[in-house]
Design a protein around this nucleic acid. Sequence first.
DNA 1: CGATATAGGACCGAACCAGTCCTTGATTAC
DNA 2: GTAATCAAGGACTGGTTCGGTCCTATATCG
Lengths: 161, 161
Amino acid sequence: MLKLTKKADYGLIALKHLAMRNPAETASAKDIADAYGIPLPLLSKILQKLAKSGFLRSEQGTNGGYRLARDPREMTALEVIRSIDGPIILTSCFTEHGECHHSGRCSVREPLRKVHDGILRLLNNITIRDIASEDMEVPAPDVDVQVYRLKPSGLAAHASK
Amino acid sequence: MLKLTKKADYGLIALKHLAMRNPAETASAKDIADAYGIPLPLLSKILQKLAKSGFLRSEQGTNGGYRLARDPREMTALEVIRSIDGPIILTSCFTEHGECHHSGRCSVREPLRKVHDGILRLLNNITIRDIASEDMEVPAPDVDVQVYRLKPSGLAAHASK
DNA sequence: CGATATAGGACCGAACCAGTCCTTGATTAC
DNA sequence: GTAATCAAGGACTGGTTCGGTCCTATATCG
């Protein structure tokens, strides 16, 4: 039902945390876990993944921890989420490389691919730096270019379970 | 991992199917299930839900079945998905009504809300009619307004599990 | 009546998510 | 050298959700 995993959340939180600090100092997994109430062993694995994916540089030993490996402006939410959760697949009809195993029968594949690409684009246009900058009141321009043509009931409507 | 459920897929497929037929005739759940290889009892419940949500009108008895209850231009993918899968919540930090139970600690809530709204907008801008029109090569204009500013590696990159 | 429909409750296996536990190994402080 | 502090990573578990099946009840037409 179109939800991000908590791991992805935690990963973004951690990266934001690191992006807002002096890049010279490291923060340990425990520091971050404590700061946001995230279970330490869980966060550890997320940070390990982010390190392996090249977002973080890790330092072992006393006073070790993690620091950003790249400029936060060069880390998109899309990359981060993909590195933690794996590829984003809107519908099982296509993997990120395409191909539906249902052959030609899945008639909504192409329309949904548009949505899929739109979501990727959305996530790709948000960087860790955007997230770390406190005043997201003025969002990245091209994220909000689209006309907000919702009907009054649109977003407020709430489908009962 | 940001995936639509198969139920939502099936629901969209069914609505598209109905939208492309003569609105005077009904199609039974079995017809649709057979046409797309969807398990009948599963599809039945989806159609029931869609009927209860006002997308379909159902007719029981021999030669019964389903027909669209409204103009397909007035049914958005967002409404359909919500009616089948329930509310879309990008992150557990906020329900569709807002409110994070982690109080102030979840620092990425606001940035993610932008993504969340973007996705809703995306889905809200696609109608069943859009999906049913075969030539989606020319997509709804405001869905694709955004600049496609992906780095070369962007969409192709594939995060290993 | 009997065939064909929808309506809907109960149930089940598999997958995945979130989280825990435990061990290993590197680095620094003492 | 030893202890403390850190990351690395494998194994496991409880819970939830998803996808799907089964079965019964009810409505409608021939």
